[in-house]
Amino acid sequence: MLHIYCPYCEEFREEDEFHPVGEAHIERPLEPEALTDEQWSQYLFFRKNPRGLHHEMWVHGAGCRKFFNMTRHTVTYKILETYKMGQQPSVVAEESE
């Protein structure tokens, strides 16, 4: 079970209190109608599934109810950082991974 630092509560809490939401940094296109079906489906359906570092969104559902981001290693489950919504990760995966 993960031990997660909520960047809003500013403390470590047990995974019980959180929910994973999916890949982070997926921005809703500003003009959906301007996109082709293919472009829209990229936004809708296509997600990374890396073996290694992954930026993912979580929510502190049984805590402050804030959504936030996490950089986590999908093999070791090591959490390298958590950061607030709207911020960028400071640890980024190598492109090759």
Binding site: V21, E27, R28, M57, V59, R65, K66, F67, M85, G86
Partner: peptide, 9 residues
């Protein structure tokens, strides 16, 4: 809450 916090704060 998801949409409010992540897209339309």
């Amino acid at each position: 809450e998801l949409w409010h916090q992540t897209e339309w704060p």
